[in-house]
Design a protein around this nucleic acid. Structure first.
Lengths: 303, 303
DNA sequence: TCTAATAATACTCAGTCTGAGTATAAGTGC
DNA sequence: GCACTTATACTCAGACTGAGTATTATTAGA
């Protein structure tokens, strides 16, 4: 066992939004728990990026478009038998229409139920999490600092809740041992797809990183459109943003911002929607030249 | 030569602001060019973070406070004689007062002169860069896409120039071969500190990554205060933000935003400044609990 | 001591943006 | 034709922003 040997694993957080849920693509992992598609960097891989795409193709049968490097995890004491394992995590986005049926897409809010504020602040936070953190803080090294941290990341209400801090919330809960108390995955034989609140290894942490990053990017780069078909109605767009941001939005104001901001343009075509037909819009690429930081507005993250 | 062998290097971009210039700490590198403090991950390092701090301590004699992982560069074909070299880059911030005299702090705007818009958009951009890019675009695979990209990253004027896109600008210039045409470093014997427009290896690219990240973070997290002594005048704070953002700011409005936003509080003490004495302020930590994304405001990045 | 220069701080004001509505239009299913 | 659904247009008060003017407290030097 050579203590110097280092292996690099590439982990992909592939996100799509279907049926109003942001979802992450998983593959069967250890103990039947869902895992992220991942694989080792091999000598023939010219770049980390190409290696990642190769593994995603092999394991999930998907060609990803938008890809962004997230974070490198190196402090894991995970023994590989031959030394250290570093893991470089990537975020990838795929549009709704290109989902393959066979893939196992898990709703993000199954793993992070405290992140979904579309129907208001989840009762879970103030009923269970906040009291548990308060109880735990007594045992912490520095109770005051711990309580401050808890208040910063969970806020006191939705006006102080910062959607972007997904990772900080996850880590606080993890350190406090609260995640272990959550309903565990029921381990099942391969082939089944049980609902799971957890993931293999530290993959849930990686997903938290990805989710926070995506929420942040939403506000200043037009990444949402990577998750949509080429034409869409404004309500489709709104539901998508709501699903990712975890916040309800005011329909009329959303439309104003997105149209006045030059993010989209009408196609003249209309879609049947169950009510009055909605015009189909497309992403207006020129906005990239016109505005320095085009995205679906900051105000909603802090509502 | 084992093709499987992988080494991990940790590279630190340590930033401070002195005399109105954001500066990066460098050490002597190959060919007498300035380089980032860096070193290899060793088996005894428990985390990437501790390894980084160790190297910074050894090479620069500095204990860094704020540290944030930036990016992992793996596509370098840089041969190490024994295989692949991955490099995990970190951003660290140190306050003005703790600078050690012996260290070699290089102004960031020496490496990226097109980034400093404090006296308006640099003539360099429209006189040299834009025409050169236009000329180059003819030879590009897809001229239209290339020109769009050039316009997006450099904008047409300062209302469309996005300060955060430091890396994108650097990469565009690099790919276009424009950086090689810039005045080269005059290589000198070790010991001297020549002004240099370039850095060893791909370190300039890493610094560009760090600079862009810092500019972004400025607007939604109170990172500026990591770069200041514990008390400071509002003009000091303003000059610091201007130096980093590369933009001039309206004094009265800056004061209003920073005070009304609850980011700082007066100490009652005053400092001699050459004019009317200025009150000394300190960072108001409570703002973290009160506001979800406290920072020195977004509007100035898009002025 | 008086004056100019420097910097800090207070206040104003018009224009824009935001949040929260109301009102109306154009489809569907029955 | 009616109830229902969804889309879209428009309004309005309040907050925030950009760009000033005005006043105050110092220091340097005539």
């Amino acid at each position: 066992m050579d203590p110097q040997a280092i292996e690099i694993s590439l982990d992909a957080v592939i996100i799509a939004v279907t049926d109003g849920s942001p979802r992450v693509l998983t593959v069967p992992g250890a103990d039947g728990l869902p895992a992220l598609p991942s694989g080792l960097l091999e000598p023939q891989d010219r770049t980390l990026d190409t290696a990642l795409r190769r593994w995603v193709r092999e394991q999930a049968g998907i060609e990803v478009g938008y890809v962004e490097q997230l974070y490198t995890f190196g402090d894991r004491e995970r023994a590989t038998g031959s030394g250290r394992l570093l893991s470089v995590a990537y975020l990838a986005l795929v549009a709704e229409e290109s989902l393959s049926e066979s893939a196992d897409w898990r709703p993000l809010y199954d793993f992070f139920p405290w992140e979904d504020h579309r129907d208001g602040r989840p009762a879970l936070i103030d009923d269970q999490i906040v009291p548990a953190l308060a109880a735990f803080s007594a045992r912490a090294d520095d109770p005051a600092a711990y309580e401050e941290r808890a208040q910063i990341v969970f806020g006191t209400d939705d006006s102080t809740f910062d959607g972007v801090r997904v990772l900080e919330r996850y880590e606080l809960l993890y350190e406090s041992g609260l995640l272990e108390k959550s309903p565990q995955a029921t381990r099942v034989s391969p082939g089944e797809r049980p609902p799971s609140k957890t993931m293999a290894l530290d993959h849930r942490r990686i997903v938290a990183t990805a989710f926070g990053r995506l929420r942040g990017k939403l506000t200043y780069r037009p990444v949402v459109f990577e998750l949509l078909p080429s034409t869409f109605t404004l309500l489709q767009l709104q539901r998508l943003v709501e699903a990712l941001a975890g916040t309800p939005l005011h329909k009329q104001n959303f439309r104003r911002l997105v149209e006045a901001g030059g993010l989209v343009e009408g196609t003249g075509e209309h879609a049947r929607t169950g009510g009055r037909p909605a015009e189909l819009f497309r992403f207006r690429r020129e906005v990239l030249r016109e505005r320095p930081r085009p995205g679906v507005g900051s105000p909603w993250i802090r509502p």
